[in-house]
Write a protein that binds this DNA or RNA. Structure first.
Lengths: 102, 102
DNA sequence: ATATCACATGATATTTTTGTCATATCATGA
DNA sequence: TCATGATATGACAAAAATATCATGTGATAT
């Protein structure tokens, strides 16, 4: 875990999960607490909490306590441009692949 | 597999593997055939071939036949800036995490 | 003080991903 | 045509990631 390769694995591993990506996607609209995320995604609370923990641990979302609520927000500086970057890659190199539902 | 979320999962999934990342890393030096990749990484041929297939399928490397050799090259337009981008993110948000070997 | 709501944590079974083994293909040269 | 070298493919066991279940913690209100 000090080789740069592990660093990338660490980073991409956190994003290689559709539920975490969906949570990120919801948070792109603005900060939300756990209950709101559950409602918006239809996911169970414990699953959301586990995945938020991973995302937070990777610096991809931030957390802020407010009474008994915990508000999560996406790391806009990093994540937003990253997703846009990938949109461009997918558009150019992967559209055909995706059409035939891999 | 038509929701944008699946698109991201598709993308990140391909990169969330240390052996594939190492292959990409080797290819950053320039195009190489399978045997050369094996030698450079110490990986077995079948494993390298399987992983190259994944990377090619995702538009992250390109392949070019030359006689009985197959030369692979990294998609520099996408991969290089992506890795640099992640370096910056890791530097800013994940350095402490990585130091204590997660 | 205690009940309740919001959320986190730990353990584990299940799913997914991965590497390996055996084998196939494809190109080249004898 | 056959042998050999280079690489790909398929099947499957092992490893890793994940969701779920049960339970724990912390804040607020009564």
């Amino acid at each position: 875990m000090n080789h740069p390769i592990d660093t990338y694995k660490f980073f991409f591993g956190a994003l290689a999960n559709p539920n975490r990506l969906q949570i990120i996607n919801i948070l792109r609209q603005g900060k939300k607490n756990v209950g709101e995320i559950c409602k918006a995604t239809g996911f169970e609370q414990t699953m959301v909490s586990h995945n938020l923990k991973v995302l937070e641990h990777h610096g991809m979302v931030f957390m802020e306590k407010q009474g008994k609520y915990r508000y999560y927000s996406v790391n806009k500086k990093t994540i937003k441009p990253l997703l846009e970057f990938i949109d461009a890659h997918m558009e150019e190199y992967c559209c055909k692949i995706l059409e035939k539902k891999r």
